[in-house]
Structure formats: structure tokens, C-alpha cells
Design a protein around this nucleic acid. Structure first.
Lengths: 109, 109
DNA sequence: AATCTTAATCGTAATATTGCAATATAACTT
DNA sequence: AAGTTATATTGCAATATTACGATTAAGATT
């Protein structure tokens, strides 16, 4: 006991959870927002931008990349990271769907 | 070391991270989706719906409530949980904003 | 080639999360 | 009041996450 019972849930729910989990840390929110702000891809600038050590940033970048939220392209010496629009669109679509279902009626307690 | 350096990030980013973190578990996604599906508020039915023990569900419900994603109202013997539309709307707005900023131009690597 | 720069990886300590059995609490039922 | 039902809390084991110093890997620069 202690590990998430991933196998007991449908793949779709697991996938959404992976996306949200990746966004569930202020450093990773900050990285995403910075990437969106500067648009053109950045790498080690993030280390200068955030109050965390380089290995920690690298670790957070890997998690965002594993979740599919960003991509990293080797560019000579450095690595160029950028937001993956498709994933953002996917999360947006999820909430639009959810939001629509709630709005229908919410005669709750 | 080991704890998130919350104090080093702006409150807004911390708040968004709390919301996403709460959604970052398949059981909590399942609970949210179930609540949305049945609309009218439910309590212990969730225990029958999901493959987790009652204390575990109770714990997940508390986390969703702490994040502000659901509300729980005492109704006689049982407790009636429901989705908080305001929070869903807030997350939706976040992604609409983010999505709009990305769409502008994404001439990335 | 020696050095510098950039970023990943390794190892590890501190802390958080997940899950559940056992127990507690609170309201309802008889 | 005693029993039932519904949910929360406690305590704990297993596992995951967070953060970083030290090191490594790989391309760039001199």
C-alpha cells in the first residue's frame, strides 16, 4: 500500500490525472507560464527565472515533458523547450465539456 | 529539503497548483466525474462506485473540498457532496486565457 | 586538446501521498 | 437506550515527490 491504484481506473481518467498532476506544483505552473510568455523557446533561462537549483528545474522539466505538456528540442549546446499546444487544447476541451454538463442544472444541496 | 518551496512562488501560481494537484489523482477525477454525472448530490454512493475503501474515499473527498472543488453539506445522517461550479469556471478561464496566448504565434523549435 | 557552457543524471535526505484496518463520531431507527 | 447507518479520524506501512550537491555527458569555444 502507498502507491496509486492506477490499474483500477479507466485509462482516460488516468491520463487526465497525469496531466493535472504535472500541473500540480507551483514551479511547474511557473515554468509553463514563463514558456507561454516568452513564446520562443527557452532552456536555462528558466533556472535564472525561478528560485530553484538547476537539477530541480531539470527534474520538473522532465515531468512536464513526460506528461506531454512541453517538448524539448536539442539545439546545439542547449535544449529548447516549448509548450505543446495540443495538450493545452485537450485540457481546455475537458473543462469546456465538464463546464457544459454542470451548467445544465445544479440544484444541489 | 523535500517540501515544496511554496513561499518562493506567487500566491496565484500556488493556488492554481493546489487546484491541479487536487485533480492529479485518478480517484479524484473519478469522483468529480461521478458527481458531475449524477448532478444531484451524493455521498456514500461514491464508495460503492469506486474500487477503494471508505476511509480512502473520505480522504480524497477532503482533499477535493480543501481545494474548493466540491462542497459537502450535512443532510441528516449523511453528507451531500457536490461540485463547486465557481472553481470549475475558474480553471476553465485559466485554460482559455493560456490557450489564447499560445494561439497567437507558436513559431517554436 | 583543454576549457567552458548547458543540461541531464545520480544519490540521498526530508517530506508528502496513498491506502486501509481499526476506531470514533454523529444522526437516525427501533 | 441500544442498535444501525453514514462518514470522519487515527495510526501506520508502503511508496512517491521535492530539492539539491556532486557528477556526468555533450556540444561549443579557445
Amino acid at each position: 500500500m502507498g502507491a496509486t491504484k492506477t490499474a483500477h481506473f479507466p485509462a482516460r481518467q488516468n491520463q487526465m490525472a497525469i496531466l493535472f498532476k504535472a500541473l500540480g506544483h507551483p514551479a511547474r505552473i511557473a515554468i509553463m507560464e514563463y514558456l507561454i510568455k516568452v513564446n520562443t523557446c527557452i532552456c536555462g533561462d528558466i533556472v535564472n527565472e525561478l528560485p530553484l537549483a538547476q537539477p530541480t528545474i531539470s527534474q520538473h522539466l522532465r515531468e512536464l515533458k513526460n506528461a506531454g505538456l512541453i517538448t524539448g528540442n536539442v539545439e546545439g549546446n542547449s535544449i529548447c523547450y516549448c509548450v505543446d499546444e495540443k495538450m493545452i487544447a485537450r485540457v481546455l476541451a475537458y473543462f469546456e465539456n465538464v463546464s457544459g454538463k454542470i451548467m445544465k442544472k445544479n440544484n444541489c444541496c
